[in-house]
Amino acid sequence: MSEPVSALRRARYAGFVTVEEAGLQGMVQIRGDLSSDAFTSAVSDAAGVPMPGLREASLDGRNGLLWMSPDELMLLCPYPEADRAMARLQATLSDTHHLALNVSDARAMFTLQGNGVRDVLAKLAPVDMAPDAFRPGMLRRTRLAQVAAAFWLRSDTQAEVICFRSVAPYMMELLSTAARPGSAVGLHGG
């Protein structure tokens, strides 16, 4: 059995914000009817966190549920537990229409840490990053420069970004360039 490795093996860049590829992260993409109680309670049970609302990230440590679209969620869990979480979900939902796919090896995650996280994201995404417009717990699925991404804030100084694994090197360079010392805009503090 080969040893799983993350896209950039925890590459790290220390700028005015610290950028780090987060390493292996379990991610299960789930689609179904979000208005069905049977579906949402099974998903919530499998993830171990409450259902997120519209454009929210429901997080508890390494576990979480991300609201991705009106019929799509992303389950977060420790990497080795993704298949188990998916199996649990499929067992509960055997009679309910849904789709679940372990995409852990097809995605990459990055963490941003520092006072300037809002500045870094605001440079790259067409998103209002003002503290009263984008708050911790909210999620935004958008683009960072030229690639699709989703991000959320764990706090005012910590953000997480996910993207396709195939664009992880681009994302690392992008975030690092935006976090280069001396390039802080200072629009959102930091």
């Binding site: 519209l54 454009r55 679209s69 009106p70 067409p126 935004r140 699925r141 958008t142 683009r143």
Partner: peptide
Amino acid sequence: PYCGVQAEETEL
């Protein structure tokens, strides 16, 4: 109208 985002053109 689905996710409520005020999306500018490059996101569409």
